[in-house]
């Protein structure tokens, strides 16, 4: 599978300008001799991340966005190179008046397109600089889905910060986690010459890939939004935790990678943690102390 992770730098709220820029990316990628199979974009790629109330003006219905992207691909790819392609992209979704921070996995052919999956962000950060749940509703379900390259899952930004989420995705059969993200950079102490927030993402992606033997395709939004710098740092991580490519924090880039999903089997054979988890997890989840400890009436 030939993969592109596009570290996109949108102009705030300028959807048509951003769609045109996304079309330029399509044209650039389609110009290569060997066609791309999957193109991944960040969270809130077409609008920018911090929208506050403007999210209600800028959110798409899934079908409208899918139609626009499919048309854009057909318009911008040269006719002789118009091959099927899959696109994963983060966007603000308007579901009939309920708004979500979503990501879709879209399959486009010269003749038709199909929305394979839409994931609605479940963990909406609403603390400090973040204000998502003031404006958005959270997703209720984490699903893995089949693609022509194998089973995958979409996790949006903070979804990835909770170990249970990639764990459940992997148990549901995901062999690759697609992670559209928008991470405002902070922490200038500079261990390893990186912002603290970027370093944490690195550790998280590495540890998750190793634990579950999954590929991770992390697409980070780039550019400053009202003083808050989005830390790009897009990367492809293999099922042994090795970083295959990494983009800088600042600016727009495209990561190109050849992905062999056979690596997942080999990684899991040599480090069978996912298999171990499958055996033990029922005991952990069926523990009769677990749910009462989460209940409202929990006693000290």
């Amino acid at each position: 599978m030939k993969l592109a992770i596009v570290q996109f730098k949108p102009r705030k709220g300028e959807v048509e300008t951003n769609l045109a820029a996304l079309g330029d990316v399509f044209a650039q990628l389609a110009a290569e001799e060997k066609p791309y199979d999957l193109i991944v974009f960040p969270e809130a790629a077409l609008t920018g991340y911090f929208l506050e109330g403007a999210v209600y003006e800028l959110a798409f219905s899934t079908n409208t966005l899918a139609e626009r992207l499919a048309r854009l691909w057909r318009e911008r790819a040269p006719v002789k190179r118009l091959k099927p392609v899959d696109v994963a992209i983060g966007f603000y979704e308007n579901d009939g008046g309920t708004y979500h921070n979503s990501a879709m996995y879209l399959h486009v052919t010269p003749e038709r397109h199909e929305v394979i999956h839409v994931h609605r962000k479940m963990f909406l950060p609403t603390y400090g600089v973040f204000d998502e749940e003031r404006f958005l509703s959270r997703g209720r379900r984490l699903q893995a889905f089949d693609t022509r390259f194998g089973r995958m899952a979409l996790l949006i930004c903070e979804d990835m910060w909770h170990a249970l989420m990639p764990t459940i995705a992997a148990i549901k059969g995901a062999r690759a986690l697609i992670v559209p993200s928008a991470s405002p950079g902070r922490g200038i102490e500079g261990r390893d010459g990186e912002l603290e927030s970027i370093r944490y993402w690195h550790e998280l992606l590495h540890a998750t890939a190793v634990e579950h033997g999954v590929f991770i395709f992390y697409a980070g939004l780039a550019g400053f939004e009202g003083g808050k710098g989005m830390t790009g740092s897009s990367r492809a991580v293999d099922p042994r935790g090795a970083t295959l490519a990494e983009a800088p924090a600042l600016g727009a880039f495209i990561i190109r990678a050849e992905i062999d999903f056979g690596e997942v089997d080999l990684a899991r054979a040599s480090l069978p943690l996912l298999g171990d988890l499958g055996a033990v997890l029922p005991d952990l989840l069926l523990d009769d102390e677990l749910l009462p400890s989460l209940a409202h009436e929990r006693r000290p």
Binding site: K12, G185, E189, G190, L195, G223, F224, G227, L250
Partner: peptide
């Protein structure tokens, strides 16, 4: 909590901030 900063990292970040805010935006 430390007040130490990586000056090279900070300068690079702030220069990018100024270019983005003034020129691009």
């Amino acid at each position: 909590p430390s007040l130490a900063i990586d000056c090279a990292l900070t300068a690079e970040w702030l220069e990018a901030f100024l270019r983005d805010e003034l020129i691009e935006r």
